[in-house]
Design a protein around this nucleic acid. Structure first.
Length: 920
RNA sequence: GCUCGGGUGGUGGAAUAGGUAGACACGCAGGACUUAAAAUCCUGUAGGCAGUAAUGCCUGUACGGGUUCGAUUCCCGUCCCGAGCACCA
């Protein structure tokens, strides 16, 4: 019987569905293991080819863990809110829910055809009201909590109100916005609205004015991780900075914990590094400088990491958006400053970035005093200082900061070197090394010593204090969009008021159009009745990352109507043991989820402080394009190897009509009408195509659909081939050359079980060599899977098969364990063979075979080696060496052996000519 | 500019507590079966030199040095590729 993969795969896929083979329940008798894929956004294009790579890896791992006796949670769902469905709705009027459901159906079909072992009874969709109820619930919790820096955790806002009533806010150390100090008396005499405004500054989910990335083309604000190089990630539209009143999440309160807890995660170094960068902790000092605009005096505060360079500070710089600009601009400079700021405002973020290194600035008219040198320092305004970082103002030390240096050179400001022997004639000396000079009491100290010494002095003189600054900003949480979670907030007499949690979910209303209103309000403002208790509801919706921030918790207890996740389910499944997905979420989803989880941890709803213990990033899949070469001005195509003899134009050709870089000429003629009469110049009777690695895209005709491969080779081949392609974490082109090799392996494996088209296995005892083959394989597959080195374990199967073919071994003792080993990789064929071997339960219920060391030890013997008649040590030699060979080994390796003489050598393994292993 | 990865045959890639470099697979070449093709099976395949041959020798893991009996692996320098961050004071 032939290996009929289509029939076998269909048969077992429906068997698994019918028997709910992969359904899991909490089971305290077994250890748990939680394997999670980053759930996909169901786009109209169907499953992206990069997706299966990670999914297959996670499926192999979870099937392996199941065989190892773990109770494995391996769920799947959909990140279903998102821009594409909404934009399609704007164009066509189709409800985004309809588009989304249709796409989900297609995704499900594709996923099913690859044979994944998901427990579909746990599916979640972020756009399902039963799910987003819990997104809204978490938001309300954040609204009703504040972050206490003393206890380093979130606490109830009611407790804060009690403190305010008793003693005001003087003793409260909270992560908060800018607040005036008030006493208990002042608090109690405030109006309701004033109190609400004050509390808003403390809430973890808060409404506040902030500079946002506004994307006019999309009509919405975007988070920092949704913008790249001044363009929106979705669509590539220009983004500008705008001040707007937006919902935000106080992620910055958790910056230190997000940073510290990275250490205990098993994530790749590069990913942790990216997060550290994004969090951007820097240690330094906040310092006060006396400034005067000629009429009034102020204390301007700045942040610096180089307090040691204070003696070289010759001017100050403010960000154009800084609130100090107004106070410090003198009347003479008013006009110039106005013009500069208007100019800066008009520029988009992108333009600002393009102009990096182009020096611009304007003098404010005010002067500060250097507290150590008493020198007068002009206060400037320049774009290179950012409003959002530190205090939006700096002391400029041109000798030791390249940006200050360029600025000083351009505007002819004084530059004072502070490091002995440094050359600052061409550029600044930024390195934190050397011996201080021109620096009063710091002279003679190294930079390393000078930094703390300077801060000590600053603190002593009450000019400032130590401070840690983070780059991580609060997450902007409002989107002026339709297709997202509505906020459970309504406005009662102008006060943002939470909806009672028992009234959740606040469901997305129907609207006549998915566009903003004429007055520029978000689409939800079009809804007929968008009120709660008679008051207007918030019209923004939540961003994409809202729904994906806690979905891994919902999988633990997906149908619970009373809680996001029950205590029992959470304390059994705890957190994700293995998370697989792309790096593109490094600074978005993976930060927000960690924040969300820590918040829920503070409140006692979850028992682990980190959501994802181990994380693997599967590499990006690029496209591998093929080219044909048209001779210029003709309809003749010349084969790759001969193209240099002609003037040719390179043309992309659909990779689906090319096999192993050979063009299928008939398909090519039919591909496009203009090629129907094409002529070809062949080499050796074939047309060879050129190729290149490019981005996978329709326009380059290099998109390969996984369904197609399932149809022509089978899912098992697809699964094994994708793993065989190379290391999981490495980016690589999607290249189907070579898929035949893996397919051939499966066919050959199948044939071991079939003699003359009859299924037949022998009950005979296995030979020593056969056992050795099996146990080498068990060991290899086990360690490879544990190390996520799936490509080498596929190779190991091939090697084992080649060895078994030598004796056409069809013994049950060998083949039955091999079927189990193969089942994570190629589950359908394994299931069929397992069934034929006489088992009536799924192979996934079997146990991973045990590796027995004795079967794989090499035969060897010890050989004494002596120099000058004195026995030095024994060589362990392979049994197959003859006496002559041993002597020649000793001769050849005399140098090595003399070196070994005297060392405490336990074992030396030698093969003809070479020493291959020395065990000390 | 800074940070982190990575450079191995015609191709994808194996092998690093330093120990037979190129496993496995693709491709290619030759052969068997076949009227033929497909499928299948067998043999060869880093490069160079010598030999009728079995075989032997030399050179080879981006480049240049170093440590070592021994380096693809460790150290220093250079070049190239990829990813991320980017006026963060």
């Amino acid at each position: 019987m032939e290996y009929n993969f289509l029939e076998i795969e269909k048969k077992w896929q429906s068997y698994w569905a019918k028997n709910q083979t992969f359904k899991v329940e909490t089971d305290n008798s077994k250890p748990k293991y939680y394997v999670l894929d980053m759930f996909p956004y169901p786009s109209g294009a169907g499953l992206h080819v990069g997706h299966p790579l990670g999914y297959i890896a996670s499926d192999i791992y979870s099937r392996y863990k199941t065989l190892k006796g773990f109770n494995v949670l391996h769920p799947m769902g959909y990140d279903a809110f998102g821009l594409p469905a909404e934009q399609y709705a704007i164009q066509t009027g189709t409800h985004p829910a309809a588009t989304t459901n249709k796409n989900i159906e297609r995704y499900r079909e594709q996923l099913d055809s690859i044979g994944f072992s998901y427990d579909w009874s746990r599916e979640v969709r972020t756009c399902d009201p039963e799910y987003y109820k819990w997104t809204q619930w978490a938001f309300l919790k954040m609204f009703s909590h504040w972050y206490n820096n003393e206890t380093q955790k979130a606490e109830s806002i009611d407790s804060l109100v009690k403190i305010f009533e008793k003693e005001g806010n003087t003793n409260v150390n909270a992560a908060c916005g800018t607040v005036e100090i008030f006493s208990a008396q002042e608090w109690n005499s405030m109006s309701k609205k004033q109190q609400a405004n004050s509390l808003m500054e403390y809430r973890i989910a808060y409404l506040g004015e902030t500079s946002v990335n506004w994307c006019a083309a999309l009509g919405t604000v975007l988070a920092n991780d949704e913008v790249k190089e001044g363009l929106s990630i979705r669509g590539g539209h220009p983004v500008e900075q705008r001040k707007m009143n937006q919902w935000q999440l106080r992620v910055s309160a958790y910056a230190q914990r997000l940073l510290d807890d990275l250490d205990e995660l098993e994530w790749s170094d590069s990913l942790k590094e990216m997060q550290r960068n994004w969090i951007g902790r820097s240690q330094g000092a906040q310092m006060l400088f006396k400034v005067s605009n000629g009429k009034e005096e102020f204390n301007l505060d700045i942040f610096t990491t180089r307090a040691d360079t204070i003696f070289g500070a010759t001017f100050m710089v403010l960000a154009p958006e800084s609130e100090w600009v107004e106070k410090l601009t003198t009347s003479e400079q008013q006009e110039a400053v106005q013009e500069y700021i208007q100019n800066a405002k008009r520029k988009t973020e992108r333009e600002r970035m393009m102009e990096t290194r182009k020096v611009s600035g304007v003098f404010s008219g005010s002067y500060a005093v250097n507290p150590f040198t008493q020198e007068k320092m002009p206060v400037w305004i320049a774009e290179y200082v950012l409003a959002g970082y530190g205090t939006g103002a700096i002391m400029a030390v041109p000798a030791h900061d390249s940006r200050d240096y360029l600025f000083a050179k351009h505007f002819n400001l004084p530059i004072i070197p502070l490091i002995e022997g440094c050359d600052i004639s061409q550029e600044s000396f930024d390195a934190k090394e050397g011996i201080m000079c021109n620096s009063g009491f710091l002279n003679g100290l190294s930079v390393e010593q000078a930094i703390p010494a300077a801060i000590d002095q600053v603190e002593k003189r009450e000019l400032g204090k130590r401070r840690v600054n983070f780059r991580l900003r609060d997450a902007i949480f409002s989107r002026q969009r339709y297709w997202g979670e509505p906020f459970p907030i309504y406005y009662k007499e102008g006060i943002a008021t939470p909806v009672e949690s028992k009234e959740l979910p606040i469901e997305l209303p129907e609207v006549d159009k998915y566009l903003p209103t004429e007055s520029g309000e978000p689409p939800l403002a079009r809804a007929k009745k968008w009120t709660h208790n008679g008051y207007p509801l918030e019209t923004s919706t939540m961003p994409g990352f809202a729904g994906s921030s806690a979905y891994y918790l919902r999988y633990m207890d997906p149908n619970n109507p009373n809680a996001l996740v029950s205590k029992e389910a959470n304390s059994y499944w705890r957190n994700v043991d293995l998370y697989i997905g792309g790096t593109e979420h490094a600074t978005g989803h993976l930060i927000y989820s960690r924040f969300w989880n820590k918040f829920l941890y503070d409140l006692g709803y979850v028992c682990e402080k980190e959501p994802f213990k181990k994380l693997i990033n599967q590499g990006m899949i690029q496209g591998r394009s093929n080219f044909v070469y048209r001779v210029k001005g003709t309809n003749k195509f010349v084969s790759y190897g001969l193209k240099n003899n002609y003037h040719t134009t390179e043309i992309h050709v659909d990779v689906n009509i090319v096999h192993n870089d050979k063009l299928n000429i008939e398909s090519f003629k039919k591909w496009m009408p203009e090629y129907s009469s094409a002529e070809f110049i062949l080499e050796n009777g074939e047309y060879i195509c050129g190729w290149a690695v490019e981005k996978m895209s329709k326009s380059m005709f290099n998109v390969v659909n996984p369904d197609l491969i399932c149809k022509s080779y089978g899912a098992d081949t697809l699964r094994m081939y994708e793993m065989f392609l190379g290391p999981l974490e490495q980016s690589k082109p999607w290249d189907t050359n070579g898929i035949d090799g893996v397919h051939r392996f499966l066919k050959r494996f199948w044939k071991l079980f079939y003699k003359e088209s009859e299924f037949s296995v022998s009950e005979e005892k296995a030979t020593a060599n056969e056992l050795k083959t099996l146990h080498k394989l068990i060991k290899k597959v086990e360690t490879d899977i544990e190390n996520f080195s799936f490509n080498t374990s596929v190779s190991a199967f091939m090697i084992a098969l080649n060895e078994l073919y030598e004796t056409s071994c069809n013994k049950r003792e060998i083949l039955e364990p091999m079927v189990i080993l193969l089942s994570p990789f190629a589950p359908h064929i394994a299931e069929e063979l397992w069934n034929n071997l006489g088992h009536n339960t799924s192979v996934s219920k079997a146990f991973f075979p045990k590796y027995i060391h004795e079967y794989t030890i090499e035969d060897s013997f010890e050989y004494p080696v002596s120099f000058n008649g004195k026995l030095r040590y024994k060589l362990t030699l392979s049994n197959s060496l003859s006496k002559g060979e041993i002597e020649s080994v000793i001769r050849e390796n005399e140098n090595t052996l003399r070196y070994l003489n005297g060392a405490s050598i336990k074992k030396v393994i030698v093969v003809p000519k070479k020493i291959i292993n020395i065990v000390c």
